[in-house]
Design a protein around this nucleic acid. Structure first.
Lengths: 150, 150
DNA sequence: GTGCATTAGATGCACGCGCACGTAGTTTCC
DNA sequence: GGAAACTACGTGCGCGTGCATCTAATGCAC
């Protein structure tokens, strides 16, 4: 009788990896840029979109948030002045979400942090030390984890 | 030149994969066994432990929950009669959590569901169709990501 | 045009989570 | 032996999330 047929192991490794990364990401983004993971995800997607604007629906397809969670996240971002909502003239049910100047600036400031955290946690040697986490001086406290997949 | 150095792609694939799996798992476990993911994780770990009992601390090392979240999860499980707490005589700060009969039964009932969901979502061909999810049939549309690290 | 089904997005609600803190019990050091 | 530091666990609190539901706008039938 096999007890650990593989799927469960895979799942646990996946969950472990995800949690390590998301916790570190959440913490660093929050502490250094006042952004939650979801918020950053939204403005990051917006920054990558044409004209830095997307409809809620399109945003929802890219981020893995529920529709309500996305609505709240955008509301928070709007409250902080990082995005603004605009009616869609073609379909007046729709809402465009556009990155503001402040939003773009914040995203550009936060992206290196994201990259650094991810390469640290996910163990990508490519960016190690390139876009490192200077300023605060904290080495993230997750060095040496690596969660090596090999 | 689009600069996508890999880490972000890896991260997004990882997050996607994790969310697909956790959402499906959460939903199925809840609907079919009245268990949340965390709850199942706890009783599953307990079932795998010697004498089906562990200290909170040891449990905390295995599950990726914060100490408080674990405390609440165990409280819920105790409320439902699936586990029971017992003082640790050696160290009276410690608390043992033990699987009850009902708890073991529930875990044994839920494990096939977990396996089935995971093999469905994570795409492990080994269990495909063996412990299948009745009328699911949906490939969940996440095949072929893998995010190979090698 | 009027009525009904559908879709986009917002919101009330309950819940699980992490953080900070409180409370016992233990160890350390004098 | 007694005070301080530390550890294991529980708890108040605020917050973000998903679910169900609501509103407004669109499309379709007739």
């Amino acid at each position: 009788m096999s007890e650990e047929p593989g799927v469960v192991e895979t799942w646990r490794a996946l969950a472990q990896r995800y949690h390590d990364a998301s916790c570190a990401l959440e913490r660093e983004l929050q502490e250094r840029h006042g952004l939650g993971m979801s918020e950053f995800e939204v403005i990051d997607r917006l920054a990558g979109a044409a004209e830095a604007k997307l409809r809620m629906q399109e945003l929802g397809e890219q981020v893995h948030l529920s529709q309500s969670a996305l609505s709240r996240a955008v509301a928070r971002l709007e409250r902080d002045g990082l995005v603004c909502r605009a009616l869609c003239e073609q379909d007046r049910r729709g809402v465009f979400v556009a990155l503001t100047e402040a939003g773009r600036h914040r995203q550009e400031a936060a992206r290196p942090t994201q990259r650094a955290v991810l390469s640290e946690v996910l163990g990508d040697p490519d960016l190690r030390g390139e876009t490192h986490l200077d300023s605060k001086g904290s080495p993230l406290g997750i060095a040496g984890q690596r969660a090596s997949v090999a």
